[in-house]
Design a protein around this nucleic acid. Structure first.
Lengths: 207, 207
DNA sequence: ACGCTGTGTCGCTTTGCTTGACACAGATGC
DNA sequence: GCATCTGTGTCAAGCAAAGCGACACAGCGT
């Protein structure tokens, strides 16, 4: 109602339209995956659900594989948003921030239909690979974002330490999401206990 | 993170793109109006700011007048959202819902740059007319939405009564937004006092 | 070996945005 | 009064993106 806090440097239509196209397609695929296996969802289905032609889909994402990669990447981005929020809510205490973030992540992952589809395991092996064997870009990106938010939150942290911590956390997060050992909160607490001392040490004498 | 509560019946890209175009253009105009008078903002300015050509703007909104009308209508819609929220927060007591809604509306109107531009009065007479002399479609629509939310909130209310009340409220709201007599909360309280008995009567013996 | 289905590509058509030009009306200056 | 300038609204031609239909190719089941 009031004017936007700060002007977000208006996005020109052409750019916004392109993004809208991609999002529409990815959303359409996501919808399909709630009720059907990835292997059963054809490119034609996705295009149809998005209201565009198959060719437009192929032009935007060069192949089915690349489309799947984009799908995985965007889903990861959503999780990262939630995680960043969780970290932001515990700026005072890194260890509890870690626990909270991990908890939020696992909780969300457990409820996420795309993740469930993958973990449940039938017909989505190709998608699974995007988070593991072929997951380098995704892990990379997630670790980067996590590093950024950490460095911003706790200035005493040094970049190499943050990078190591981030990458391990991301890998652990993916691992537990793919194969939970117990309730989310318990896992989160365990990880926090495991890595807490390391973090405390980093924060304490800055390196 | 979790899947959307209820599937919002995915919008096909072509429709979403069109809406995006309209929104981009309207937003662009809104931006301009923060710093310049309506009379000084040309159609070319708006198209440029939105990143499209002037012709595209003309095709989407047939003329400058119709563009202005759309601008006013959309701004009204924003206010209605806020008002509907306020009503929803006071389902137990119609009179206080009315007061709250009116308060929210006047408060928001006072802070809204487009409204301020119009009320402040220089070079926006044409826009002002869209809320008054040429405001029939806008008043109509606002009253309808208000009626709908009222009927949904208080089932005992009968449609004709709700329609009368809604239209009067909309007219009063516009009037006070255009020409405030005192602080928003005081005005809201006065209106609530004025119409409270009528409402109580309607709710009490259902007609 | 055969038909079936889905991926990925190609060329043609169609749609929609852009560009540049124009007529017209109101305002300003000489 | 006439000339100029600016902004609105319209037009035709150009162009890029999306749609449509057809095709080759690979995998799969019969």
């Amino acid at each position: 109602m009031t004017d936007a806090a700060v002007t977000p440097a208006r996005v020109p239509y052409s750019v916004a339209a392109r993004q809208l196209l991609r999002d529409t397609l990815l959303d359409a695929a996501r919808d399909q995956l709630v009720s059907r296996r990835w292997a059963d969802v054809t490119m034609a289905d996705i295009a149809l659900a998005a209201g565009v032609s198959r060719q437009t889909l192929y032009k935007e994402f060069r192949s089915r594989d690349q489309f799947a990669a984009a799908l995985a990447m965007r889903e990861a981005d959503r999780f990262l948003l939630a995680v960043e929020d969780a970290v932001g809510a515990h700026l005072d205490d890194p260890a509890s921030a870690l626990a909270a973030a991990f908890d939020v992540f696992l909780q969300a992952a457990g409820e996420n239909s795309l993740v469930r589809t993958i973990v449940h395991g039938d017909g989505a092996e190709e998608l699974l690979a995007l988070f593991t064997t072929h997951g380098e870009p995704l892990v990379q990106r997630a670790a980067e974002r996590l590093t950024t938010v950490m460095l911003a939150s706790w200035p005493l942290l040094e970049r190499p330490d943050a990078e190591l911590l981030s990458e391990c956390l991301v890998r652990l997060a993916i691992s537990y999401a793919a194969l939970p050992t117990g309730p989310a909160s318990m896992t989160a607490a365990s990880i926090a206990k495991l890595l807490g001392p390391y973090i405390e040490q980093l924060i304490a004498h800055a390196g």
